[in-house]
Simulated assay, not measured.
Amino acid sequence: MDFVYAANPSRVVFGTGTIERLGDEAERLGLERLLIVSTADQTDQAHLVASQLGARAAEMFANAVMHTPVEVTERAMSVVGDARVDGIVAVGGGSAIGLGKALAMRTDLPQIAVPTTYAGSEMTPILGETKDGAKVTQSDSRVLPEVVVYDVDLTLSLPPRLSGTSGLNAIAHAVEALYARDRNPIVSLMALEGIGALTQALPGIMDNPDDRGARAKALYGAWLCGTCLGAVGMAIHHKLCHTLGGSFNLPHSETHTIVLPHALAYNLPAVPEVKAQLEGVLGPDPARALYELAGTVGAARGLKDLGMLGTAINEATERALANPYWNPRALESAPICALITRAWNGEPPQSD
């Protein structure tokens, strides 16, 4: 057995009430003037972070938005300069953490990530930025947070439906890690554990959003899935979602939720060993199981429900195929168009 496994050097603090250790983590990094980054909807949690940091909280920027538009990053960069900050704390989901990464890319400032969703991007050296209607993804060690503080309590306010789509977004990272070109046994173990934890936890959160056990299991699964995303390459699913999100301004986790079963169905015939692994976690039809899980968590199952026009399907197909990239199954225009069409309609997945 031959493989290469490279672990990313993030420090992870996981548990309940761990936000209270945020000041200690900032002190350990030698940070005195921190910029707190969040979305407008998460200013309450940003203020909670500020209260934990005390005098170390130098400034707040609560204007992060999805897909990390370059123009928003440029506005935040002005705040970085004016406030003379020496580090960044991003609190929230992928939008806030993405902005924190974009600032780190430009400044090489240390980051502390405080995730409040199950997106998993906090565990990756990957940054996706949007400019002029196109999303560009790059990998750079500068954007990997130095510390990630997972606090189960901060996820209790995440609405059940958003918890479901955020969790399915995380599952997508692990699914593609299983058939990544540079996959390895360690990442596959984490991927299967993460998928199992999330598929068990998400229905429980739907039944009782205050179930701390289910919330903890979901956050644990999200951490594992995010670690997979940061450790190996991705394939057609992530390419499609970045294309759809960046080109048509579709919501991130909802797009991942819709596309995942279809992308998996497309690839499974080319990776029978992965199909066997997923059957052990998801049952005899893994793609259909993820489609049904989306229904269980109340997610939209058609891209048309997110506002994408049917006339954009051909454009999406062309953009998805524009730049060659690795995928376990050859990328062909007609089957990819059929995949996107089924995802647009909200139909069950199938392999062409």
Rank of each mutant, 00 (worst) to 15 (best):
L290I: 10
T296D: 08
E273Q: 13
T317P: 06
I258S: 07
G280V: 06
L278I: 09
Q200D: 14
L278V: 10
A289H: 07
L224P: 01
G221L: 02
V297M: 10
D285M: 10
T255Y: 05
P203A: 00
L260G: 04
A299E: 01
A265K: 02
C225Q: 04
C225T: 08
P251M: 10
M308D: 02
H252T: 04
C228P: 03
L260Y: 03
L306F: 02
L264H: 02
T227W: 02
M234E: 08
G226K: 05
Q277T: 03
D305N: 08
Y220H: 15
E254G: 03
L260N: 02
K239Y: 07
C228I: 09
A201M: 08
D207W: 00
M308W: 12
A287K: 04
G295M: 05
H262Y: 10
D211C: 11
G245K: 01
K217Q: 15
P284N: 14
L244R: 00
Y266M: 04
K239Q: 14
R301C: 10
L202R: 08
A218Y: 08
A265N: 06
H242G: 13
R288W: 11
V259S: 06
V271W: 10
D210A: 13
L306W: 00
G298D: 10
A294W: 00
V271E: 03
I313N: 02
L303R: 03
L229F: 14
R301V: 14
E315R: 11
M206E: 07
A270G: 11
A218M: 05
A231V: 02
G230A: 09
D210G: 07
T296W: 08
A316R: 01
V259E: 00
C225K: 07
G230P: 08
H242M: 01
E273M: 09
M206Q: 13
I313A: 04
A300S: 15
E315P: 02
M234I: 14
A216Y: 00
A216V: 05
R301L: 13
L250A: 15
L202E: 04
T243L: 01
L282R: 06
L293Q: 11
L240V: 08
A270K: 11
F248H: 07
T257V: 00
Y266Q: 06
V232M: 08
H238G: 10
S253D: 15
M206G: 00
G310H: 12
L244C: 01
G280I: 12
S253K: 00
T317W: 05
N249M: 09
G298A: 07
A270N: 09
A316G: 03
Q200C: 11
V271R: 01
A214G: 08
G213V: 12
A300Y: 10
L293V: 13
T296L: 09
A216N: 10
L278T: 03
N208Q: 09
